[in-house]
């Protein structure tokens, strides 16, 4: 193997918890490019895991593998007892149990906020429209924008759009939430309102994997921080560990740039 990177670090969840995501020996290539190398990671129920790392380190690809937006070539991914295989039923099952929030919001511009949120519950969970709308309004209220229900995404600010996206994912009642750089595309003054929602969510006990550079968020609610570089997990630890005593040179170099 031409790879010269040092051996991968395992990121196992504390043993006192109940693991809901288990990733073992995950490898992924984009063509020739080895984007994920021997990733082993598990996440307990209610845990908040923050993934950091330079761009191109594979952190987004990693969480996109968890709901099979990306296909992996080697290793096992088990989400809430369902292993991701080529079986469409398993993939659907995992996607129903994981919510995802994207960097670019990805709201459906042709639907109102309410329709954006109720689309999947009605079509996938087969809820009645009334129940879906009731749940949607509950979560809109929760993310603090109940009055925007009948507007179109194009009429909202970036921060509001991202909060709608979070409400949309939550309405499906997922067991795990995946955040893919949820604040990177936002203006600085609206980042706070999105982080607030995420913090509240974390405090309610939602299992979350968050790819972000918001170290304040990591310090406040993060249980573990994972530093990735060149497709590998380089260092794992508590937020305090990263702020006070990062071990690896690569981690230090990265943190010195973003802090």
């Amino acid at each position: 193997m031409p790879d010269t990177a040092p051996a991968a670090v395992r990121a196992d969840a504390p043993t006192d918890g109940q693991p809901i995501i288990e990733i073992e020996g995950l490898n992924k290539w984009f063509g020739e490019f080895h984007v994920l190398r021997d990733i082993s990671l598990s996440v307990n129920k209610g845990e908040v895991v923050v993934v950091i790392g330079p761009s191109g380190s594979g952190k987004s690809t990693l969480i996109r593998c968890i709901n099979h937006l990306e296909e992996h070539q080697q290793g096992r991914i088990v989400v809430d007892g369902t292993e991701l295989t080529d079986d469409v039923r398993n993939i659907d099952q995992v996607r129903r149990e994981t919510g995802m929030v994207f960097q670019s919001f990805n709201l459906f511009p042709h639907l109102t906020v309410l329709e954006n949120i109720t689309l999947a519950p009605i079509r996938v969970r087969k809820w009645k429209k009334s129940k879906a709308e009731e749940r949607a309004r509950f979560f809109l209220d929760k993310v603090g924008i109940p009055e925007q229900a009948l507007k179109f995404p194009g009429q909202l600010s970036g921060g509001q759009q991202q909060r709608v996206a979070i409400a949309r994912a939550l309405t499906m009642g997922p067991k795990v939430m995946l955040f893919d750089e949820p604040t990177s595309a936002l203006d600085p003054e609206v980042i706070g309102e999105v982080l607030e929602v995420m913090v509240a969510l974390a405090q309610e006990g939602m299992t979350m994997i968050v790819v972000t550079h918001e170290m304040g968020f990591a310090r406040e609610v993060g249980d573990r921080v994972i530093f990735m570089d060149q497709g590998q997990i380089v260092e794992v630890g508590t937020p305090e560990h990263f702020f006070l005593a990062p071990r690896e040179e690569r981690t230090k170099a990265f943190l010195s740039k973003i802090l």
Binding site: D92, F102, L107, F108, H110, L119, M172
Partner: peptide, 24 residues
């Protein structure tokens, strides 16, 4: 991202096409 968001919500590929991609 539209397609990905729809798939991530659990919509099937055909639902994703007919409800999200095609209308746009």
């Amino acid at each position: 991202g539209q397609r990905e968001a729809a798939l991530a919500l659990g919509l099937s590929p055909s639902q994703t096409f007919s409800l999200v991609v095609f209308p746009q």
